[in-house]
């Protein structure tokens, strides 16, 4: 095709660039919004937390920054990081490039949990906890069935994931059918679209512990995940207990997915597109892929959330945007030449 062979950047440089981009995206997100914060005021407010600075801004600005914008920025970064990490992990342990965080039913379980809580008119906390618990239980059920399947365990897991997911989707549809169409049904529909609007510190605190509990082991075990992509027998002859390692990785990936989905609703495509984007940048070796995927996911979701907040007068649910951006982007990725390994 006469394409110029582009020079591949070393991994260290890629991570450094991604990190700088992330910091840039965070600064941008602080400034943009219905209540704009100019750079000078932003710098002043941030510095005033460390040094004594004579305030030249009004109190509302500081309030917006710390109580509204900061939790939302942190949550967008964390959810993007978690969904990407989970997608990357699932793709490896299931030896399947099409795997995404919802492949073992974490999302459909969460959706059912949330819909059920809304149906019973519970408060937003109960919705979050119900989504989280149902998400974990759904994946536990999928693993339970997958382990009992005959033949290849990985295939058994994927198939039972598809089955249980569709079962819970049907259950969610039934809840929507019987929900009160004047208030409950819109609430369920809105939840299913996914949104980071109105993020509070409490939600952030609720999500951060399971997220850290999943992300840290995924980072520590990342080089081992490579060997699972070759199949159980080969992994075992290289000294790795494949079944145990896969179960640990799946539990961690599920934990971060459940935590993300329960506070943000269904945000699709991130967990599929970002891992593949990261694969193109740093290759398939999980030692490099996992960190790159995590940072890239954080940047991506933060930027998309800015669009969701600022594009129209009303907020666009972020799940709609990630699908709009994600699908064409994915097509671009798979048709582009020059795969890196």
């Amino acid at each position: 095709m006469g394409m110029k062979k582009r020079k591949k950047l070393p991994y260290g440089t890629v991570v450094l660039i991604l990190f700088i981009l992330l910091v840039g995206a965070v600064i941008l997100s602080f400034m943009l919004g219905r209540y704009p914060v100019p750079p000078r005021e932003l710098l002043g407010i941030l510095l005033s937390k460390v040094f004594t600075v004579e305030p030249f801004w009004n109190d509302t600005m500081e309030l917006v920054l710390f109580n509204i914008r900061l939790p939302r920025i942190l949550l967008a970064c964390l959810v993007g990081c978690c969904l990407s990490a989970a997608g990357t992990a699932y793709q490896g342990v299931l030896q399947n490039p099409m795997a995404a965080p919802d492949i073992l039913g974490a999302s459909s379980g969460a959706a059912f949990g949330a819909a059920l809580a809304i149906l019973f008119n519970r408060n937003s906390w109960t919705v979050i906890i119900s989504a989280f618990v149902f998400s974990l239980m759904t994946v536990a059920l999928v693993i339970f069935i997958g382990e009992r399947s005959r033949g290849k365990k990985v295939l058994g897991l994927i198939l039972s994931g598809i089955m249980i997911s569709s079962l819970f989707s049907a259950a969610t549809s039934f809840v929507k059918l019987v929900a009160d169409p004047s208030n409950q049904l819109p609430a369920i529909t809105y939840w299913l679209m996914g949104s980071l609007a109105g993020t509070k510190r409490g939600e952030l605190l609720f999500a951060v512990f399971p997220m850290a509990g999943g992300l840290i082991p995924l980072l520590l075990l990342r080089w081992r995940i490579n060997v699972l992509t070759l199949g159980d027998d080969e992994a075992r002859t290289m000294g790795v207990n494949a079944a145990a390692l896969r179960t640990i990785v799946i539990i961690c990936a599920t934990l971060v997915t459940a935590a993300s989905v329960s506070v943000s609703g269904m945000i699709g495509w991130v967990g599929l597109v970002i891992p593949h984007f990261a694969r193109r940048m740093v290759g398939n070796n999980y030692k490099h892929l996992m960190p790159a995927s995590m940072i890239l996911g954080a940047i991506f979701l933060l930027l998309v959330d800015n669009v969701s907040r600022n594009l129209l007068a009303m907020e666009i649910p972020i799940g709609i945007l990630t699908a709009f951006i994600g699908a064409p982007f994915f097509i671009y990725l798979i048709t582009r030449e020059g795969e890196r390994y």
Partner: peptide, 26 residues
């Protein structure tokens, strides 16, 4: 053909799994 394309070097390096502790890299 594995599901993902690894560099030849990364593929060979995987042989050292048994020498490296579970939470570290070669």
């Amino acid at each position: 053909y594995p599901a993902f394309n690894y560099s030849v070097f990364d593929m060979v390096l995987m042989g050292t799994m048994a020498q490296v502790s579970s939470i570290s890299s070669p």
